[in-house]
């Protein structure tokens, strides 16, 4: 499904923080994981994930490290810092509250 760009603005950050709260991942893996979990409903333009990752790294939410992946190839893995964990939790709560409110407005059939 194609979503409006404005609709997705702000969700990329939540999505990245939520996925990285579970384990360290690299950029392509984040995109793949988001697609897999949403049954391909949420297909990001893959390049958009990198500016978001770099911004969050500069803001001290993420730390990055190069290391070999399962296939033996070096990948840049991102993980949450303590500040990132707090932000992830805060964003998750905000998102739950907003989605609950939207569900109440639209009705369960549309949520």
């Amino acid at each position: 499904m194609d979503y409006d760009r404005e609709f997705l603005t702000g969700t990329v950050g939540v999505l990245i923080l939520s996925l990285l709260a579970e384990r360290e991942m690299y950029g392509y893996e984040i995109v793949q994981e988001a697609g897999r979990r949403s049954a391909q409903a949420l297909q990001l333009k893959e390049g958009t994930v990198y500016p978001a990752l770099h911004q969050m790294e500069r803001n001290g939410l993420l730390k990055a490290i190069w290391r070999d992946g399962p296939a033996g190839r070096a990948r840049k893995y991102y993980g949450l810092t303590a500040k990132g964990r707090r932000r992830a939790e805060s964003k998750r709560k905000q998102w739950a509250s907003i989605s609950g409110a939207m569900r109440a407005i639209l009705g369960d059939a549309h949520a």
């Binding site: 392509y28 333009k45 893959e46 390049g47 958009t48 990198y50 500016p51 190839r73 070096a74």
Partner: peptide, 26 residues
């Protein structure tokens, strides 16, 4: 490394470039 993983064959590469998004925007 992103494109290395996203593409295997020439067709995959072209598809990976398309999925990557608008160059100017990124």
């Amino acid at each position: 490394t992103h494109f290395e993983e996203a593409s295997g064959s020439p067709d995959d590469t072209r598809d990976a470039v398309r999925r990557f998004g608008a160059e100017a925007l990124i």
